[in-house]
Amino acid sequence: MIAWHADPGLLHRYATGDVDPSLAASLEAHVQACARCRADIAGCVDDARLALGLDGLLAAIDAPRPGPVESLLRRAGVPEHQARLLAATPSLRLSWLLAIAVALAFAVGTARLARDPSTGVDLFLVVAPLLPLAGVAAAYGPGVDPTYDIGVAAPMHGWRLLLLRSTAVLSSTTFLAGAATLLLPPAGWAVAAWLLPSLALTLGSLALSTVLSPLRSAGAVAAGWLAVVITAFSEQATTALLGPWPQGVAAVVVIAATGVLAVRRAAFDTRGIR
């Protein structure tokens, strides 16, 4: 087909970058179309380099492909290792997020079907703060995290991993719950009353998990929340939660828990989480 072929000396000089740009362009156009010159030029590349490349390629074929969450994170600009760590979070799995969505759908459905809309909103306000709490509790620790053992052995602070995952879980769950509040019957600002208590519960549970296991501390905090809500606010939780007192207490808990976490963060490393 093509009668002309580049001579080996010329190809070699091209390979070492020693040809004029327009000649190089001409050669490239030719090499792309000519199997014989492609074979000739192969000799100009280090065999060991090519062998290494082929090994890497065959290994890459066998490597597991990143799941949807991981590729989404990668696309959003999260570095590869952090994306992998986040994607391994049990409470960032699709099944978990779906469960959250279903729970929220039930809460919203109940709120909309309830004879008295404010009761429905109350129910939602009680349930919503518990969802991020559960997510964060299941984000890290023995028993729930399949990569826990690897994480303990890894040269990375458990504290850092915990923060990374908690932030991701907290934001995704809060986003879902936030979206659900838009579907609630109109109740003004009351629908946002769960946000601060939610943060307080999550941080409180994290602070507690420097002493207890994450699941136990989450359970304890959830039980405490339910007890407080049922006894103190059995009437009209909406208005009660919106008041300065409950919100103030929640804010104090947030600040205190943050302080405890900052002071006791070494507990996540030296002792590990029990």
Partner: peptide, 27 residues
């Protein structure tokens, strides 16, 4: 795949090398 690699990886490497100085990136 290995055969395709053997045929085409060399010239692709060289041609990419003229567009990127970092051999690691090229590989």
């Amino acid at each position: 795949l290995a055969e395709l690699y053997r045929r085409h990886a060399p010239w692709l490497t060289l041609r990419l090398q003229r567009r990127c100085t970092d051999p690691d990136v090229v590989d």
